[in-house]
Design a protein around this nucleic acid. Structure first.
Length: 796
DNA sequence: TAGGGTTTT
């Protein structure tokens, strides 16, 4: 979301504030509404939807086992009893992934049998530089000390599970971990993939008594699916029912209770917990997992934790990170000790090109065929930057395959990117027919979020499409940049999951070490900070420039956000939170969107605005356009267009979907992403609950007057008053009413693309091939004067 | 004439 808040805001301060104080006092007159808890069935439904979200992946894997092979084939004979133990457990639905990890891990001693013959690698010499052996594990440490003291595992443990747990690399470090933590408040753990840290460390803490006195142990994850599946695994290991002693809390799904002593949460969720319990007094230990990913929530959590460890000397903090930035975390926490735990992964050989490749698409294409014609079986994963590139590559591949015909073994090409219909997505998890090699073309989604079985070869051009927010122009830009070394290593690691693998980097070794950044730019330096700043202010952190950020965002970025919050009435002239601001923190939304909702009750369109807002942040991947059916998809979409623009189109989509009984088939017919709509429905339900809570509405009865459209326009303008553009007198470009003068254009996906109305409001400004306004609707001068006069009264 | 990936009591 992009906002322009310039000097004019300051000049209009008194006027704006007067208006806001008035509305605040009006809000005070609203009788308090008791908090509405969601009905059981709603929760059920939400959970059902959540399960469905995971289903394609899980389901296809189950099918795989049924149709092609059993898990036993992976295992050593002596491991079979353990497998059957895992397999027969029906109490947790989410264990299959974990079971697989265990099977693969225990298969490790076999890895020599799969060793790729060196001669094959020599065939590459004319293309690739000398290979560099990258060892992801350390055999010396792994073979370690077998004479561990026997641990007193509690009686509830099944011996076989205890055995499996002891076989994890992390087990050898159990004593070290607990002792170091006893003597230090903060501990950095470097645990590579397959070390078992995420499932084991919280259990060690529990066994060591950290959950006594009604306290709990929390472990954060950046992704929802990780929180749920790991919690299920740990509940299983501890032989308890998920949601009792071991649970998880993610948005729209809470499987935890008073008895929960080990809780897996998304990092964003733990951040929200600060609002109700600023000392996190319920926890004795907090583990921040995957800290190296530096998500914005993790970043803020780290700063807040650094604060509260001073007042809570008993609280223990564990930061789990990848090798590459462990030192930085240690320094951040006053040189906290670092504990290294080796992982258990298969080795991956890295090949570099001898000279830089001018056309990486062409180079990737060539490499795919070289692998296919010279290397033993195993699927190929290719990292590309986006949908367009993937489609181009798929076409080129199919073309070549067609031309080569019988001259090569069969090859199956499939693609994956986030904005792809889920039916088509699941294709990538299917096992190809015998003798056929699968080639998966993927975006970054395959780097961390999804795991595809059977990958032995990775082709990495070394690029990524990255989003960057510019606070000065309040514009996002989406540009292709070289990826980081950490990212490249993560991609390479994807080849070493089922056996030893190979990674072909389409850049030189020199480039890797000299031109790539060590780490990706942390999210906090690339995003609009308005929501985060509102959150920090609501936690009483007023001196934002002194907040301990690991990488402090620019002063300008913070000031821009403060100005915007002031313009929205969330802050008063002294920089303190107003009642409006306090209400805004209740909503998990950008403050501009919350402002629209808060004002909507004045115009009697709260329900409508909640629909629009619930969909708007997902609106860029609501519709999809499959190659070959693009025109049909456009035509179907056009039927849902509203003449007033995209906000109204979203409302149209919502209402039509509802009329069709929230049908999945209808979505498919209209080329609409069903999962996106489901997510929006969850958000909508949450927003309605919150609206009731803060007293904006008392029923979900939608009132639809003759002037509904105009009321919606007013509510939207009350939040987006700074995002108004006028059609320029020459050409088809638009210019902001106030602020930057450079021209921008209506995005081709907009309902208004051909109409080109005189005045529009937009949701966001994105720089891709041009400066595009995304999600636009028509407004008129009268509306702008009425709703945004305070902002446009002065020259800007 | 076209959107990398996450996520929020």
């Amino acid at each position: 979301m992009n906002i322009q808040s310039g000097k004019g805001v300051r000049r209009n301060r008194s006027e704006l504030f007067a208006q806001e104080e008035q509305s605040d006092s009006e809000e005070n007159n609203v009788p308090p509404v008791t908090e509405v808890t969601p009905r059981e069935e709603e929760q059920e439904q939400e959970h059902e939807q959540e399960q469905q979200d995971h289903r394609p992946m899980k389901k296809s894997r189950h099918n795989q086992y049924k149709s092609n092979r059993t898990e036993y084939e992976y295992a050593l004979p002596e491991e079979q009893s353990k497998k059957s133990l895992l397999r027969n457990n029906k109490s947790t639905a989410n264990t299959s992934w974990e079971v697989e990890q265990f099977n693969k891990a225990s298969q490790l001693p076999l890895s020599n049998e799969d060793k790729i013959i060196e001669n094959n690698a020599d065939d590459y010499e004319f293309v690739f530089d000398e290979t560099q052996f990258v060892n992801y594990d350390d055999p010396d440490i792994l073979s370690g000390d077998e004479e561990q003291e026997s641990l007193d595992l509690t009686s509830a443990f099944n011996n076989e599970i205890a055995e499996l747990r002891k076989n994890l690399p992390v087990y050898n470090y159990r004593a070290d971990f607990l002792t170091t933590l006893e003597n230090n408040q903060v501990l950095i753990v470097v645990g590579e993939t397959g070390s078992g840290k995420t499932t084991q460390l919280p259990q060690y803490l529990y066994e060591a008594g950290y959950s006594q006195n009604n306290l709990a142990i929390a472990c954060t994850q950046p992704r929802r699916v990780a929180a749920t599946s790991i919690a299920a695994r740990v509940a299983y290991e501890m032989n308890v029912k998920l949601g009792h002693e071991v649970g998880y809390t993610i948005r729209f799904d809470d499987k935890s209770s008073k008895d929960t002593v080990i809780k897996y949460v998304t990092d964003g969720m733990l951040l929200r917990e600060f609002l109700t319990d600023p000392q996190l007094s319920h926890y004795s230990a907090i583990m921040i997992d995957e800290a190296h990913e530096r998500t914005i929530s993790t970043e803020i959590l780290l700063g807040l934790l650094k604060d509260i460890i001073v007042t809570r000397p008993q609280l223990k903090i564990i930061i789990a990170s990848a090798t590459i930035n462990a030192e930085k975390f240690s320094q951040f926490f006053n040189n906290a000790p670092i504990l290294n735990i080796p992982g258990r992964r298969f080795p991956v050989k890295i090949h570099y090109t001898k000279s830089p490749e001018a056309n990486y698409i062409q180079a990737a294409l060539t490499t795919i065929f070289q692998i296919h014609t010279t290397q033993p079986e195993g699927d190929i994963l290719v990292f590309l930057t986006g949908q367009e590139e993937i489609e181009t590559m798929e076409e080129a591949l199919q073309d070549s395959i067609g031309k080569l015909g019988d001259q090569i073994e069969p090859m199956l090409v499939c693609s994956i990117y986030a904005n792809m219909a889920s039916e088509v997505q699941s294709k990538i998890f299917n096992k190809p027919p015998p003798g056929t090699r699968k080639v998966v073309l993927a975006t970054n989604i395959a780097e961390t979020s999804i795991t595809i079985d059977g990958i032995k070869y990775v082709v990495d051009p070394g690029y990524v499409k990255q989003n960057k927010y510019n606070p000065a122009t309040s514009m996002e830009s989406l540009v292709v940049v070289p990826c980081s070394r950490a990212s490249a290593d993560q991609r390479a690691g994807r080849a070493g999951r089922v056996g030893p693998g190979k990674c072909f980097r389409l850049f030189t070794k020199w480039c890797f070490y000299n031109e790539l950044d060590a780490n990706p730019t942390p999210e906090i330096l690339r995003t609009n900070l308005t929501s985060v700043i509102l959150l920090l202010l609501s936690l009483g952190i007023n001196d934002l420039l002194k907040f301990p950020f690991m990488d402090p965002p620019s002063k300008q970025s913070i000031i821009k956000s403060l100005e915007l919050l002031y313009a929205l009435g969330a802050l008063n002239s002294k920089g303190k939170l107003t009642k409006t601001g306090q209400k805004m923190t209740e909503f998990p939304l950008d403050p501009i969107l919350t402002k629209c909702i808060l004002m909507s009750s004045k115009f009697g369109v709260t329900i409508q605005i909640c629909c629009i807002i619930a969909m708007i942040s997902e609106s860029s991947n609501l519709f999809y356009r499959p190659k070959g059916k693009a025109e049909l998809a456009d035509a179907r979409k056009a039927q849902l267009h509203h003449q007033l623009g995209d906000h109204f189109t979203l409302l149209n989509v919502w209402r039509t979907w509802k009329d069709y009984g929230y049908s999945k088939e209808w979505c498919r017919d209209c080329f609409i992403n069903y999962k996106t709509l489901q997510r929006s429905k969850n958000v909508y339900d949450q927003l309605i609950r919150l609206c009731k809570k803060v007293g904006l509405i008392d029923s979900v009865q939608e009132t639809r007057g003759d002037d509904e459209d105009r009321m919606i326009q007013k509510a939207l303008l009350s939040g987006f008053f700074m995002n108004v553009c006028r059609l320029s007198r020459m050409g088809d470009g638009y210019v902001k009413l106030k602020g930057s003068t450079s021209g921008c254009f209506i995005h081709p996906s907009s309902a208004l693309y051909k109409t080109k109305p005189k005045l529009v409001i937009y949701y966001e400004l994105v720089l891709t091939s041009k400066e595009y306004m995304r999600c636009c609707s028509i407004v008129d001068d009268k509306l702008v004067r009425e709703m945004a006069g305070h902002y446009y009264a002065s020259k800007g």
